[in-house]
Amino acid sequence: MKFDHAVWDMDGTLIDSSRVVPEAFVRAVAALNGPEVNINDVIAAYWRGTSEVILAHLVGRDLGPAEHDAYYRELAGVQVAAYPGVVATLDALRTEGLPVAVFTGTSTRAARILLSAAGLEADIIIGGDQVQNPKPAPDGMRLAAKLLGTTPERLILIGDSPLDLQAAKAAGSFSAAAAWGHMHDPSEPADVTLPTPQHLLPCCDR
Rank of each mutant, 00 (worst) to 15 (best):
A177C: 08
P65S: 11
D4K: 04
R142S: 11
G119A: 14
V42Q: 11
R206D: 09
R109Q: 09
D139N: 07
R142G: 09
E36N: 02
E121N: 11
D69N: 08
L155D: 02
R48L: 13
L14Y: 06
A176I: 13
I158F: 02
P138I: 11
P197Q: 04
Q166P: 02
S173G: 01
A168Q: 12
D185H: 08
M141H: 07
N40G: 08
Q198P: 03
N133Q: 14
V21C: 01
V26N: 03
G140R: 12
Q130T: 03
S18K: 14
D41S: 13
K2E: 09
R109V: 08
A176S: 08
G12C: 14
V78W: 04
A168Y: 11
R48D: 02
L201D: 04
L75A: 15
A88S: 14
S187P: 03
E96L: 15
A145L: 02
D185Y: 09
W8Q: 00
A88M: 06
V20K: 12
V192W: 15
V7P: 00
G149N: 04
A31R: 03
R73I: 08
V80S: 06
A111D: 01
A190W: 10
V86W: 07
Q130W: 00
S161E: 09
R73E: 12
P152W: 00
S18M: 13
P22N: 02
V26Y: 01
G181S: 08
V102M: 06
D4Y: 01
V42Y: 08
R206E: 13
N40T: 10
L115F: 12
I125T: 10
P134S: 03
L201M: 07
